[in-house]
C-alpha cells in the first residue's frame, strides 16, 4: 500500500516535470529573438503571411491559450508541420523512429551485457590503493572519447580502407563505447561499495565461494545505482545518437533534428527535444519501479 502510494507520487511528480519541460520548450520558442512569426517565416515575410500565421497558430490569443492549443495538439500526436518540407512532423518522426531506436537499444544492450560483467570483474580484482595505471587509463579513456571524435575516426578508417559497413553495428559500436565504460565504472563503484558491507564479510565467514557471494549477495545489492545509471545512459545515448546519425548519415530522428536546427525548422526541434525529454522521464519512472522491486530498501527510503 505504502509502496503503491510512493509509485503514484513518483508518477505524479514525473508528470509535473514533463509539464514543466513542455512549458520550457514552448517558452523557448516564443522567446526567440525576432519574434515567433519572423522566426518561422523569415525576415522577408509579407504582412499577409504573418496574419495568416497568426491565425493558424492562434497568435492573437493569450499566451496561455496558445500553450493550451499546442499542448492539446501534442496530446493528440500532432506536432505541427515542418516548415521546410511542409510535412507533418509526427509522421516524419514516426518513420525515422526505428533507426534511432535500434541504435539506442543496441548500445544499451552492449552497455549492460559488456559493462556490468566488466565492472564486476574489475571490482573483484581491485586492490587497495586503486587499480593499475593501465586499467585506470583504459576506463578513463572509455568515458573521454566523445562520439564525434571516435565516430570521425571510424568513418575515416571505413572509407579509407573501403570496408563494408553492415547496418547499424558500427554506429552502434561508436555509440556504445561511452555507455559501456560508464556502466562498467558505475558497476565497479557499486560492487566495491557492497564488498565492504558486513553482510559480505559474514558470507565469507560462512565459507561461501566468491562466485556464490557475487551471485547471491552482491549483484542484487549493487543493482540500484547501475539501474539508475541505465536511465541516464539511455538519455545520453539519445543525444549521442544525434551525433552518430549525423556522422554516419543515418535517417534517424537525430539527424532530422540536427538538420532542423541548421534550417531553423522549429516545429521539428520542439518535437525532437520534447520526445527526448519524455523518453528520459518515462525511462526514469520505469527504472525506479524496477529498482524498487530489486532492492526492498529503496521504495521505503524515498
Amino acid at each position: 500500500m505504502r509502496l503503491l502510494l510512493w509509485w503514484a507520487g513518483r508518477a505524479l511528480s514525473s508528470a509535473v516535470t514533463l509539464l514543466g519541460i513542455s512549458v520550457l520548450i514552448f517558452a523557448a520558442l516564443r522567446l526567440m529573438p525576432g519574434g515567433f512569426a519572423e522566426t518561422i517565416l523569415g525576415p522577408f515575410a509579407t504582412p499577409e503571411q504573418k496574419a495568416e500565421l497568426a491565425v493558424r497558430y492562434g497568435l492573437d490569443q493569450s499566451v496561455f491559450a496558445q500553450y493550451g492549443h499546442w499542448m492539446a495538439a501534442v496530446g493528440t500526436g500532432d506536432f505541427g508541420t515542418s516548415m521546410i518540407s511542409g510535412q507533418p512532423v509526427a509522421a516524419e518522426l514516426w518513420a525515422r523512429l526505428p533507426v534511432t531506436a535500434q541504435l539506442t537499444l543496441l548500445a544499451v544492450a552492449a552497455a549492460v551485457l559488456a559493462g556490468v560483467p566488466l565492472g564486476v570483474l574489475t571490482a573483484l580484482r581491485a586492490r587497495p590503493g586503486g587499480g593499475g595505471v593501465a586499467g585506470r587509463l583504459l576506463s578513463g579513456l572509455g568515458v573521454s572519447v566523445p562520439e564525434f571524435a571516435l565516430g570521425s575516426l571510424v568513418v575515416f578508417v571505413v572509407s579509407r580502407y573501403g570496408l563494408q559497413t553492415s547496418g547499424y553495428l558500427l554506429p552502434a559500436a561508436v555509440l556504445s563505447i561511452f555507455a559501456i565504460s560508464a556502466t562498467a565504472r558505475t558497476t565497479r563503484d557499486a560492487v566495491l561499495n557492497v564488498l565492504v558491507e558486513p553482510h559480505v564479510t559474514a558470507a565469507v565467514a560462512r565459507g561461501e565461494t566468491p562466485w556464490f557471494i557475487v551471485r547471491h549477495h552482491i549483484l542484487r545489492n549493487a543493482a540500484g545505482p547501475v539501474l539508475t545509471l541505465t536511465a541516464t545512459i539511455t538519455a545520453y545515448l539519445l543525444g549521442g545518437a544525434l551525433i552518430v546519425e549525423y556522422l554516419f548519415n543515418l535517417p534517424g530522428i537525430g539527424s532530422y533534428v540536427v538538420q532542423a536546427v541548421g534550417r531553423r525548422d522549429y516545429a521539428v526541434v520542439q518535437a525532437g527535444v520534447l520526445l527526448a525529454a519524455t523518453v528520459f522521464i518515462v525511462m526514469n519512472v520505469l527504472i525506479d519501479l524496477l529498482v524498487g522491486l530489486v532492492d526492498p530498501r529503496l521504495g521505503r527510503r524515498a
Binding site: 516535470t17 514533463l18 543525444g239 549521442g240 544525434l242 540536427v258 525529454a277 528520459f280
Partner: peptide
Amino acid sequence: MRVVELLYSFPAIVLAILVAAVAG
C-alpha cells in the same frame, strides 16, 4: 530541485541544441 530535475531531463547535447536554437 524542481528546476534541476527539469534540466536533468534533457540529454546533454539535446539541451545544448535547444540553447543553440534559441540563442543562435
